[in-house]
Each structure stands twice: as C-alpha cells, then as structure tokens.
Amino acid sequence: MNLFDRLAEELRAERPVALATVVSGPGVGGKLLVRPGVDPEGSLGDEDLDRVVARDTIAELDAGRSGARHYGPHGEARQDEITVFIESFAPPPRMLIFGAVDFTASLVRVAKVLGYRVTVCDAREVFATKLRFPFADEVVVDWPHRLLERVGDTLSQRDAVCVLTHDHKFDVPALTAALATKAGYIGAMGSRRTTDERNKRLEEAGVDAAGLARIQAPIGLDIGARTPEETAVSICAEIIASHTGHRARPLREVDGPIHAPRA
C-alpha cells in the first residue's frame, strides 16, 4: 500500500497518525508515516534521520502539534540543512451530548461543522433515535452516568460534555460522572433557577466548589440566542473560547493580535 492510501485509511478509521515530509534540503519530498506502536513506513533518505524524526514525530503527535523542525543530514540537533514538516493527525475531539431534545439536534450539526465526533445519549428510547439525530456519529440509549462509566477514562482536554436534559434526575449523576473525567469543557443547560437548584443538589451529592466552578452553567455565551440553532452557536462559541482562554468579547473592544498562538 502506498503512503497516501495508508494515511487515508488511518484518517478514515480516526486513528492517530503523523506524516513527516522533507520540505527543504537533500531528499526533498521524502516522507515518513508514523503511527504509535508500529514501525514507521517510508523514508526521508537517511536511516539515522528517519530514527530521530520518527521519535520526534511521536512526541508531536502526542501533543497534537504540527510544525517545521530542523536537522542535520543524519538527524543532528542544532543543525539546519534539512527542514522537516511534521503534520500530526490526532483523532477528532469528541462531544458527548446528554439529553435528546430539540436543542440537541442543532448542537450536533454545529459540532460536526467544528469537526467533533458526536455522541448523543438519553435514557429514553423513544427520543434517542438515529432518525432524530441523523448527523450524530452515535446515538446511545442509556443513563448518561452509565455511558461515562464506560468511556469517561478516554476523555481528554480536547473533549466536551454538554448536558441538555435540564432534569435533575439525569443532570446530577451525569455531571458528577463528567467531573470525574478529564473533559476540557463541561456545560449544563437550564434557567438560572434550574442552575441554582442543580448546584444545591450537586453539593449534596458531594461536588465541591472547584467542581461546581468547572461546570459552565447556564451553558453558552450571552449572544441573545433563542432558537435551538442560535443556542448551538452560543454553546460552541463558549467551547472554543474555553479552549483558547479568550474572553469572547467583540474584537473591536480588544487590542493585540487576533490569531494568538494556539496551545
């Protein structure tokens, strides 16, 4: 199998993969396809260079970074005869949406535009159907906290959990379980009254102040959203801002570079 077809296969399967390409210096165009736990495929034209770049590429892939690096002809550090572009393809980030309501369908669509792998989960069989959420990657009929017991360990800083049920019976165990994960964003929908009442119940369930502070509730940015579609944009905008650490004010009211370096 050639390198492009292998890369395409890994991308379709959503497995982590990285491609290193010599972009200047001897052997320009040379490629090394790197996957965790497997021997690299291809070559940059020098065995030592291959070994060093494969090691660096695994580190870049772990960090989800892409960028240019410089090497000597045999992979020497602090030389720059050869420039290698390392492109990391981390699997897409995930969004778990709890509650199969109208807002869910819109949120699935906006999240897909942003490249999330989306799971919708609701314990009610009549609502949690693939027919109602055709764009979701996965629709699960179960209690949210039970789904989190199964997949919670795999969530990372890049992933988001959105609780849209606004029913304490589902919300409280779902949020408690979500707080036990490393998810980078946890949000919960509901009016201010619902949020206050839910916070009380979460405290009774043993959630401390740091835990409560981690939950974005009421979910979303204050852009005046009313419809499910507008609300989905408001939620996704908040998720982006929480990842970048930006305050989400109009750019007109902020000084400094627009494209701050990303983590």
Binding site: S66, G67, A68, F85, E87, S88, P257, I258, H259, R262
Partner: peptide, 15 residues
C-alpha cells in the same frame, strides 16, 4: 500545497 510554517499573524495553522 500545505502550510508548513506561519510567522506573525496568519489566518491558518500549519497543516
């Protein structure tokens, strides 16, 4: 064509 490096303000990231 792939973006391999960006200096200063740029609209798209490497990749």
């Amino acid at each position: 064509a792939r973006v391999v490096d960006v200096e200063g303000s740029g609209p798209r990231l490497p990749g």
